[in-house]
């Protein structure tokens, strides 16, 4: 059985008087050490997919299994406990750190939930910062970090829990493409060394092109890339394609 397994997920959101279906009967298997890239347009459901996979949100139908346990039927406290140690980490681009606190405290903070004091938590926090190459900013207040530096601190904040699956949402918000490439390399090295499974979702294809598995998300479904590594276009986009090719 896979480490992380999404089975027949369906997720709808209310909208106005009706609702929209964001994920429809979607399944995905992720094994230890896997490296998956998911490309999707804006509002194609990438974020929802990762959030459901991380247990942040419950699907309307289907189930999420992690290491043999069905996450979708756990109590919120159990799910939180699973997240605290060797579970699933979700790196999202909307992380907004508190301005005045140094990076190391941001990374140490989550460990308080595991019964540590802030003092004790500093050590593992430091190690996590070293792992992502951010130790030199450990004492810099978050307000003075650049966007790409913040992303690394956010990553350390997740790695400090020593997760077995890392879900990454939108690395493409980085201000420079080179940062995106660096981050991608970092994520790959993290995955390679420890058996950590990594899933990256992005609306820009550049950062995820070199993923071991590349998939595209649209109309609530995932499609694998074909043998040549190109993505299969969705039907509703074909009209646009034809027109733009003179």
């Amino acid at each position: 059985m896979s480490l992380l397994s999404l089975e027949h997920l369906t997720k709808r959101f209310p909208e106005g008087r009706g609702h929209t279906t964001v994920l429809e009967d979607l399944s995905l298997q992720v094994d230890a050490g896997d490296f998956v890239g998911i490309w999707g347009m804006r509002r194609s459901g990438k974020t929802t997919l990762l959030r459901v996979a991380a247990g942040r949100e419950l699907p309307d139908a289907g189930s999420v299994w992690f290491d043999g346990h069905e996450m979708t039927s756990m109590s919120p406290d159990r799910r939180a406990a699973l997240q605290r140690r060797n579970g699933i980490g979700l790196l999202s681009s909307d992380w907004r750190p508190e301005r005045n606190n140094p990076a190391v405290e941001h990374v140490a903070l989550p460990l308080l939930s595991d019964g540590m004091s802030l003092h004790e938590a500093r050590h593992p926090a430091w190690k996590a910062l070293e792992r992502v190459g951010a130790a030199q900013w450990a004492h810099v207040p978050a307000a003075r970090l650049s966007q790409s530096e913040r992303i690394r601190v956010a990553l350390a904040q997740i790695l400090v829990h020593e997760p077995r699956v890392l879900l990454v949402d939108e690395p493409a918000v980085l201000p420079r493409p080179s940062d995106g490439a660096e981050l991608f390399d970092l994520l790959r090295s993290l995955g390679g060394s420890s058996g950590l499974a990594v899933v990256i979702a992005s609306e820009d294809i550049a950062p995820i092109r070199k993923a071991r598995r590349l998939m595209s998300l649209g109309s609530g479904k995932l499609r694998p890339s074909d043998e040549r590594g190109t993505l299969v276009p969705f039907p509703e986009r074909t009209a646009a394609r034809k027109r733009s090719q003179p």
Binding site: W39, E203, D204, I205, A206, T230, L231, V232, P233, R237, A240, R241, S244, Q245
Partner: peptide, 12 residues
């Protein structure tokens, strides 16, 4: 025009 990356992403 569209650059190569975008064109690829959109399979154009």
């Amino acid at each position: 025009g569209l650059d190569a990356e975008l064109a690829l992403a959109h399979s154009l």
